[in-house]
Structure formats: C-alpha cells, structure tokens
C-alpha cells in the first residue's frame, strides 16, 4: 500500500497529470451514453467510469516503449496510454479517422505507435497474446515490459491459467493487472470463482501476486511500478489484483438490477477522481482553481473530440474488402455474392 511518503516522492507535475488523465477518461465516457442514444455509435459500449485509477495508475508506471493489451472495456486504457480523444471518439463513431479506422469499434481499439496492442472481445483471449509480446521482448533482448489488463471474470477461463503458466515458465516481462470490479456482467465474483482473493491465483504458478486498492491511483501506480521494474530486470511476471468498481452497467444495455443502490453508493463515495483532487488541494500541491481549470480544459477537449468525430468521413465502401490479407484483395474484385 502507498504511504504518504511515497506520494511525496511523485513529482507534483505527475500527480496533476494523473488527475488530468482520470478527468479526461471520465468526461469522455460520460459523454458517450447520450451520443449512443442519438444513434451516433452502435454495438456494445462498455464504459470505464469508476475504474480510471487502475488504467491511469498503470499507464503512469510505464515507459512509452512499454506495451499495453486490454479487453473490451478499454476506451479509458488507450486514453491513459496517450491516445488523443479525437481518434477514440471517431472510432466509436465508426469513422475512417478512428484509431482502428472505423473497422474495430468500441471493443477493438488499437494504436501501434503508442504500443497499445488492442482491445479484445473474447473474455480471456488476449492474455496469451500479452505473453507472446513479452516473449518477443526477451527474444529481441529489449528491456521493455507488457502490461495486460483484464476483468475478474477472465480469471475463470482456461486460457488465463495457460497464460500465467507460460509467462512464469518462460519468465517473460508481463504484468497481469486484474481489474476486479466485482462482477462479470451480472454474476458476482463470489458466484463465479472458487477463490475469492483473485490475486491468490498467482500462487499456482509461483508468480508474484499483489492486491492493490483500485480506487486509489497512487496505490495502483506504486504497485504496478514495482511489478514493472521487476519484470524489466528479469524478475518475471507479476499478477496484480486491483479492487475497483464500475459506476455504470456492464454495457450500455445492462439494466443493472443485480447491484443494490447502497452498494453503488458506497463505491461512488470512493470515486478515485475527487480522492486525488482533494489530496492535491489539501496538501497545497494544486489550488482548487487550478483543479477546476483542468476539469474545464478536459471538458473542452472532449467537446472537440465529438466535433472531430462528427465531421470525419465514414470509411469508403471498398474498405469492406481491405485489410483481410497482406496483399490487398480489394484488387481481386471480390463482391458480396
């Protein structure tokens, strides 16, 4: 757990940046439901509100050359990794200017330059991919690290165990971050996992296991930083369980009747954004006005992202056939027959 002393070691500029990043994600996510209801976006929409501390704390513990791999609740994660909101909003609009050029959508964001290696929609499917990226790192004798984020539900998939075992066996520089938000859709962790303390699932593979408060960005940051440094120096994988909560339903269409109002309130009261904001103001690192300014700047940024997405073009119809193979089959004149 992070102590006051740890906090004081983080430069104020970085603390401010963490605050800004969390606000950006929240503003982005909270703009989406309205746009969705207006038909601007389609498909699933799994919002990250409430879990910002996990993504931002994790991203801040990484170098820009480190990789991130995620599931489908990843708008916030790719933003934390440094994506411009324009490209993320445009992807949700299915526009050609989106980070996956309108072909991926909410669940399949990607940015090679930022080393954000994808959002994936099959629960657990991306865990071995992270191990492969880690293997590629040691193969090429680089000192990079890959962080893989996934939900509590994913830890019950067979592929989770395969990935954990292989990561430990080959000693790859992977940090697994389980975002335990208590539920996989409507099924609570208690009803889905024989082991309640999910970080203990690391024991079977003798990897480092750690539990952090996922509602506290600094706790996440210090936990992930420790794991990342260990991985970078040949110490092998770590499995971190971050205890968190999603403020909204599983997806936009989830009625969410399986969680009590009381439970939701308890977690809302632990909102990671005011938590850091209050800390910054109370310790005199940032004035209340400066904090407000960050909020308004981020709101404006999201407004601009919406405008950008609105104005962007759809992918051309021929795009249906491109990107299936390395040599472009559009030239082969395929058609829907």
């Amino acid at each position: 757990m992070t102590t006051q002393q740890d906090k004081s070691k983080i430069p104020p500029e970085q603390l401010k940046r963490m605050y800004r990043d969390m606000v950006r994600i929240r503003e982005f996510e909270e703009a989406c439901p309205k746009l969705y209801s207006e038909g601007k976006m389609g498909g699933f929409l799994h919002l990250y509100s409430g879990q910002e501390a996990v993504g931002v704390g994790t991203a801040h513990a990484l170098r820009s050359t480190d990789y991130m791999v995620a599931a489908y609740r990843e708008h916030g994660l790719i933003l934390a990794k440094g994506a411009h909101p324009n490209e993320i909003m445009a992807e949700l609009y299915g526009k050609a200017t989106g980070c996956s050029r309108g072909k991926g959508g909410s669940m399949h964001m990607f940015d090679a330059e930022l080393r954000f290696m994808g959002g994936y929609g099959i629960v657990g499917g991306h865990l071995p991919i992270a191990v492969g990226i880690g293997y590629s790192i040691i193969y090429r004798e680089l000192d990079e690290v890959v962080v893989c984020l996934f939900g509590d539900g994913a830890t019950n998939q067979g592929v989770f165990h395969e990935a954990m075992n292989m990561a430990a066996l080959y000693r790859v520089p992977v940090v697994f971050v389980c975002e335990n938000n208590g539920y996989g859709i409507g099924t609570s962790v208690e009803r889905a996992s024989a082991v309640q303390q999910l970080y203990k699932k690391s024991c079977a593979y003798e990897t480092h296991g750690m539990k952090v408060d996922g509602m506290d960005v600094l706790a996440v940051y210090s936990g992930v930083r420790e794991a990342v440094e260990r991985a970078r120096h040949g110490g092998g994988p770590t499995y971190i369980e971050a205890i968190t909560y999603r403020f909204r339903g599983h997806s936009i269409s989830d009625p969410g009747t399986y969680r009590s109002e009381q439970e939701k309130k308890i977690w809302r009261d632990r909102d990671p954004i005011p938590k850091l904001g209050n800390f910054l103001v109370e310790t005199g690192l940032v004035s209340a006005d400066a904090l407000k300014k960050i909020d308004t700047e981020e709101q404006e940024l999201i407004r601009q992202a919406i405008a950008f997405a609105e104005e962007s073009p759809d992918p051309a119809p021929e795009e249906l056939w491109t990107d299936v193979y390395a040599d472009d089959p559009a030239a082969a004149g395929q058609e829907i027959s």
Binding site: G94, G102, D314, P315, L320
Partner: peptide, 11 residues
C-alpha cells in the same frame, strides 16, 4: 462477405 465483421454501420 468473407471478412471479419466490420464495426462501421455501412460496412
């Protein structure tokens, strides 16, 4: 169409 399903509505 012999492609992974695209997200964009028109596609």
């Amino acid at each position: 169409a012999d492609v992974p399903m695209p997200y964009n509505r028109n596609l």
